[in-house]
């Protein structure tokens, strides 16, 4: 009696996961292996890939200055953005957890920037940061501060991008708010699992891509990678860059998981 049901279930299981399985094989696993192979080749998208062993990786580490510059820019950005994002999101979540009137309105407003398309918010911020005609330096001037050239300045372009990104802390805020309000486990776990994707999402960076800025001061790793692949057609080299990025994300995520008990300790008590 038991085995036909089990067989029935197994059959249905594989039928129902067929789209997801196909997606996993065709859009993820296959391309992953292909790009791992490409990272060991010289490939310009026209002639067939040529196996060159570890040369791409060695070239990146030893001879490619933009590789290190873009890595440094990205790390610097992360060092500024992550604490700012966490602090503002936590502060906002604590405020929004208060039981006062019109709290629904405030929640909508605080979350609003997080839903805007990167293109639109980039356009808005370019004009806010404009040193002559923008409103930010106008407000600073009113406070007696002479504002910098922001996106045109090698020093201030990166902080400007951090401010722009920090404006949309809504996603992080929602996770904190869910925790504060004891939202059902199913959702909270989902938020945590989503945290596993945080490091990867961090590489999305559409905003800086649209805004731009002084080349070397805002040369993000991912933008450098896209340029290498789709402007210069060094597809093998770009694949090596992508795999190095994946390696970094893997290390960071594992580190995060293993250090987690340090800050969720009280939760269990």
């Amino acid at each position: 009696m038991r085995s036909p049901t089990m067989r029935h279930e197994t059959l249905w299981f594989w039928t129902l996961v067929t789209p997801a399985l196909a997606g996993f094989l065709i859009l993820t696993a296959g391309p992953m292996l292909a790009s791992l192979y490409l990272s060991f080749t010289k490939y310009d998208a026209v002639s067939p890939p040529q196996f060159i062993g570890l040369r791409n990786y060695l070239f990146l580490f030893q001879f490619e200055p933009t590789f290190w510059i873009s890595l440094k820019v990205t790390l610097l950005y992360a060092l500024m953005y992550v604490p700012l994002n966490l602090c503002s999101a936590l502060l906002a979540a604590l405020l929004l957890d208060l039981r006062v009137r019109a709290i629904g309105f405030y929640r909508t407003v605080y979350f609003l920037p997080a839903i805007l398309p990167a293109t639109a918010s980039a356009i808005i911020w370019i004009w806010i940061f404009n040193p002559k005609y923008g409103i930010l330096n106008r407000m600073l001037a009113a406070a007696g501060i002479e504002g910098p050239a922001w996106l045109n300045s090698t020093t201030w372009a990166l902080p400007a991008l951090v401010i722009m990104a920090a404006w949309s802390f809504g996603g992080t805020m929602l996770i904190f708010l869910a925790g504060l309000q004891g939202i059902p486990r199913a959702l909270y776990e989902s938020a945590e699992i989503d945290g596993a994707g945080a490091f990867r999402r961090f590489t999305g960076l559409a905003g800086p891509g649209v805004v731009g800025g002084p080349a070397r001061a805002t040369l993000f790793y991912v933008l450098n990678l896209y340029d290498t692949a789709f402007t210069y057609f060094h597809m093998g080299l770009a694949s090596a860059m992508a795999w190095f990025l994946f390696f970094l994300i893997l290390v960071l995520t594992l580190l995060n998981f293993s250090l987690k008990h340090l800050w969720v300790f009280q939760d269990k008590a």
């Binding site: 699992i193 990025l245 994946f246």
Partner: peptide, 12 residues
């Protein structure tokens, strides 16, 4: 696969 950056698969 949620950890996988899109850049890894984009070229293939």
């Amino acid at each position: 696969t949620m950890m996988l950056p899109a850049q890894v698969t984009v070229i293939p």
